[in-house]
């Protein structure tokens, strides 16, 4: 029996989240296959074949899979998935969109956002915004699982030599169509894969002031994030949000600037290796999770930080 990992990609590049997902799947035991579904994505399949531990790559190419539309992708995985014990994908907005459809088509549960593999059928996952951890056993013969990538170290991207097999299964539900996408272009790393993140909160005062932390980010090669309070106040767009209702991150270094530390924000970043908090309110809850706290006015401290890096 084998495990099917669904690759996360944009038709040209394999996303790093796939490597963490492969690492999680490897702990479940079994031959590892990776499905690359998309259009014009041979390069992604070639990259997937090099991942350590992967024995086979399935490549399904058609225009109807280009934008990962849930209606089409779920039908494809449903057909392929019947031969597997586990179907595993990263808990990104793309897989969160199609994986529950796969589970329902296969008449099984989905176990969402696991952070640990206890055994082949038992997994840990956060509930109540990370305020409790549930250990859940699947009673189904096929386990449909999404993986919180921050819970698993990445598998090696090189060293494997899997075969690539083309699959020609066409599933076009023709009920949905891609109209357009507005993906923020940035030279900075993506939040979910960055080694260093600097985030601003309501204390930033307005969107223009985020330029202060962007300068620090440029020196550190960091991604820029924000708290929900900063997003709700309209300072920055929602895709920068770190927290239970935004992105879950776990970089080597997380710098929280002008962020009080609401539970919902902590749920999104408390697994970071080193946390720094800069806040003028010394009672702010963020200091209870910070390895290094600096009680200071961010408008003085952040420019100083930039100079000293």
């Amino acid at each position: 029996m084998a495990i099917l990992v669904i690759a996360e990609h944009d038709n040209s590049e394999l996303k790093p989240a796939t490597l963490n997902t492969v690492a999680a799947a490897a702990q479940m035991g079994g031959d590892l296959h990776v499905l690359v579904a998309g259009a014009g994505c041979q390069s992604v399949a070639d990259a997937a074949a090099k991942i350590q531990g992967v024995s086979q790559v399935l490549l399904a190419e058609d225009a109807c899979y280009e934008h990962q539309l849930a209606e089409n992708i779920s039908l494809l995985i449903n057909e392929l998935g019947k031969d597997y014990t586990h179907i595993v994908a990263a808990a990104t907005t793309s897989a969160k969109n199609f994986m529950p459809r796969v589970a329902a088509l296969l008449d099984v549960a989905q176990i969402s956002e696991i952070i640990r593999v206890e055994s082949a059928d038992t997994f840990d996952r956060p509930i109540y915004a990370g305020n409790a951890i549930a250990t859940v056993q699947s009673l189904d013969s096929i386990k449909v699982i999404t993986v919180r990538t921050t819970g698993f170290d990445a598998a090696a991207a090189e060293g494997g030599s899997a075969t690539v097999r083309a699959v020609s299964m066409l599933h076009n539900a023709a009920t949905s169509a891609f109209v357009g996408a507005e993906i923020a272009k940035s030279d900075r790393p993506e939040l979910t894969s960055a080694q260093v993140i600097i985030s601003g909160g309501r204390g930033m005062g307005n969107g223009e002031n985020f330029a202060l932390i962007e300068k620090v980010a440029d020196k550190l090669g960091a991604a820029v994030g924000a708290s929900r309070a900063a997003v709700d106040a309209g300072f920055v767009p929602n895709d920068m949000q770190v927290g239970q209702t935004g992105k879950i991150v776990a970089p080597d270094l997380y710098i929280a600037v002008g962020i009080s530390g609401a539970i919902q924000h902590l749920a999104g970043m408390k697994d970071s290796k080193v946390i720094v908090a800069i806040n003028k309110d010394e009672e702010a809850p963020i200091f209870q999770v910070a390895d290094y706290g600096l009680v200071a006015d961010l408008f003085e401290a952040v420019p100083q930080l930039e100079q000293q890096l």
Partner: peptide
């Protein structure tokens, strides 16, 4: 027509 919040930005889809 639905605008969806996706990783990295927004996606628009048209559904029947």
């Amino acid at each position: 027509q639905v605008i969806r919040e996706v990783d990295g930005g927004l996606q628009t889809v048209s559904l029947t």
